[in-house]
Amino acid sequence: MIKVGIIGTSSLTSGEIIKILLKHPRAKLAYLESENFAGKKVWEVHKFLKGVLDLNLKNFSEEEITENCSVTFISKQHNYASGISRNLIAKGVRVIDLSADFRLKDAEVYRKWYGIEHKDHALLKKAVYGLSELYSEKIKKALLVANPGCYPTSIILGCAPLFANSLVDPKETIVSSYSGVSGAGRIAKPGINLFMDSFRNLFPYNVATHRHTPEIEQELSIIGNTQVNLTFVPHVAPLDKGILSTMYLKPVKETSEDDLIKLYKKVYDQCPFIRVYENGNFPSTLNVVDTNFCDIGIKYDPKNSRIIVVSAIDNLIKGAAGQAVQNMNLMMGFDETEGLPSGKKV
C-alpha cells in the first residue's frame, strides 16, 4: 500500500482524484494540502465526502509530504509546481503535475504562451509527458510526470497513428473541440462557466490562440518526426463534463476507411482505455463521461481528400484525474488500470 498526497485539494480535478483513490486497492490518501481551506475537513470542501473521508486539509509542508508520501499529485495554478517539485523529488517523492509547468519542453515557449518565466529549466528537461498510451515505458521510470491537458489528450490520441505513419500533411490540420463547463474549473469566470453563460448556449473562445496549441503541436511533431502546425478552435458546450474533438487532416496519398480503422485498432490494441469504433460509428460524450476511456471514430472523405477523426473523453477523468492515476500506477509498478473504471480487455 502506497501513501499518496495531493497539493491543491480544493480543485475539481482533485475531487475526482480522491474519488478514484478511495477505491484504489493499493493506494491510501495520507496528506491533503489546501492553502485556502487549511484547517477544514476535506468533506467541508468536497461535500460528497461527508461521512466518507475525514482528513484535515493542511498548509503546504515539504517535510510532512516527504515523511508521509511516496507520490504526490499537484493540482495548482501554473508556475507553482515548478517551484516545489525539485525538492520533493530529491527527497524521494514522485510527482505528477496537472498544470502546464512541465508539459512544454521549451521554457521560452512556456513563457510566450503562459506569460510567466519558468522557475526550473533543468527539471523541465527531465519531466516525462504523461500520455501513457504513447510513453508508458518512460513513465514507469519517471520521477516527474507532466499530466497532459484535457484538449491535448483527446486530440493527440486522435491523431497520433496518422502522424506516426506519415499519412497526413503536417501543415494541414484543423481541430474543433467542444468542452463541458467544468473545464473552466470551480472559480466563477463570467462569460465562460456561469449558468447564464452556458445554459442553452454554445460558443467558441480563444480562437486559434488557446494555450494548449503548442502542447498539441509539440507532441504531434515528436510523433511524426516533423514540424506540425494546426489551427485549433475550442468551444464551450452546455454540458457539465466531456470533450468532443473533431480533427480534419489532409492525407498525403489515397487511403480507405477500412485501412484507417485497421491501423488505429493495431496501434491501440494493447491500450485498455482506447476504444476504436467500427465504420460509420462515432463517439459521443455521453458514452465516456465518468470513465477513463478515449473513444475514437474515423471517416475518410475521398471527394475532398480529408481524413476526419472524432474523439471523446471525460475532461475531468481521462483528461485529468483518471489519466493522473493511470500515470501513478505505471510509476509505482502497478497495472495501469488499478482503481480506475474498467477498461477493455487487452
Rank of each mutant, 00 (worst) to 15 (best):
W113N: 13
L167G: 09
K171Y: 09
S154I: 07
V109W: 15
I96S: 08
I96F: 02
G115T: 09
L104K: 13
I174P: 02
K140F: 07
E137A: 10
V128T: 11
F163Y: 13
F163C: 02
K126T: 01
S136W: 05
L157H: 05
I155Q: 10
H121M: 04
I116W: 09
S132W: 12
Y129R: 03
E133S: 12
L104F: 11
S85A: 15
C159T: 05
F163H: 05
V128P: 00
F163R: 03
V95M: 07
G158T: 05
V95T: 06
R111Q: 11
F102I: 07
D169P: 04
I84A: 13
G115S: 14
T173R: 05
K91D: 10
L143T: 08
A142Q: 00
K140M: 09
L157E: 04
L167Q: 11
V175H: 08
V95P: 08
G158I: 03
D101Q: 12
A127V: 02
N147V: 03
G149Y: 04
T153G: 11
V109N: 11
K171M: 13
K171N: 13
L143A: 10
K112I: 15
C150E: 08
S154K: 06
S85Q: 10
L104M: 05
I139A: 06
G115A: 12
K126F: 02
Y151P: 00
E133I: 00
A146D: 06
A122G: 03
I139S: 02
V168F: 06
F102L: 01
K140T: 02
Y114Q: 14
Y129G: 06
A122S: 08
R111S: 13
L98I: 07
Y135P: 00
L167E: 06
L134R: 02
R103T: 11
L162Y: 10
I174M: 06
A127F: 03
K125T: 12
K140W: 03
P152E: 03
N87P: 08
I116E: 14
L123C: 01
N87R: 15
S99F: 01
H121I: 15
V145G: 04
C150P: 05
K119V: 03
V109M: 14
P152Q: 03
H121L: 05
S136Q: 09
Y151A: 02
G149A: 04
Y151S: 00
N165L: 09
C150Q: 10
S132E: 06
K119H: 12
P161I: 08
